[in-house]
């Protein structure tokens, strides 16, 4: 393991981060568990899948969740910028469907910096923006050890202020925290 996850994972505040991969939504849910206060989840209205608050309640209280349904990505970005700049909501999750260009990414960074809030973009794989502070790839892993496991591999694939690395993590619902486990020897 290159270094400690704790230095990276409660995501650096006042910055916008990105996450991709099959477990991106789980990553965002765990990030929201660590946030204080409300969090806003911005998604386009046409997207057919839904976030299930019953499962979210294992990590974060769904009463803190606000969902903004927008018509297209332009609106999503406008809402995200407004919310990041305002600072009333500490964490803003944005579901991105097409790649952000440098200008859009930079505007989100500046808004997050002004409002001292954290932004997290859920991006399709390979559509990252150069302005992102960190980019993560989250994928589920099969856990031979036990049933009902939430084992995942989190890999940091872009980091503006440090090195890259990967960790195998598991959400501990009873203790309400993230456990880092050593990778299974194969």
């Amino acid at each position: 393991m290159p270094h400690d996850l704790n230095r990276l994972f409660p995501l650096r505040p006042a910055r916008v981060h990105e996450v991709c991969g099959p477990s991106a939504m789980s990553f965002a849910a765990i990030a929201s568990a660590r946030a204080q206060g409300d969090f806003l989840w911005i998604r386009e209205g046409w997207q057919p899948d839904t976030l299930n608050p019953v499962a979210l309640s294992e990590m974060a209280d769904p009463a803190r969740l606000l969902i903004a349904r927008t018509a297209n990505q332009i609106e999503s970005l406008a809402v995200a910028e407004e919310a990041l700049r305002d600072g009333a909501i500490p964490l803003v999750v944005i579901e991105v469907t097409r790649p952000l260009d440098l200008r859009e990414g930079r505007r989100l960074q500046l808004a997050a910096k002004n409002g001292q809030t954290t932004g997290l973009c859920l991006i399709p794989e390979g559509m990252g923006s150069n302005a992102a502070e960190t980019r993560w790839h989250a994928a589920p892993l099969f856990d031979p050890g036990g049933a009902d496991s939430t084992l995942m591999r989190w890999e940091i694939i872009k980091n503006k202020t440090g090195t890259l690395g990967f960790w195998d993590v598991r959400w501990n619902a009873a203790a309400h925290r993230l456990d880092v486990v050593s990778p299974a020897g194969e």
């Binding site: 769904p62 969740l65 903004a68 349904r69 407004e82």
Partner: peptide, 18 residues
């Protein structure tokens, strides 16, 4: 205030709670 401001852009009914 933030919800109102976002609501003027995307419609107040589109900011939802579960």
């Amino acid at each position: 205030d933030l919800i109102t401001r976002i609501g003027t852009r995307i419609g107040l009914d589109n900011i939802q709670r579960l």
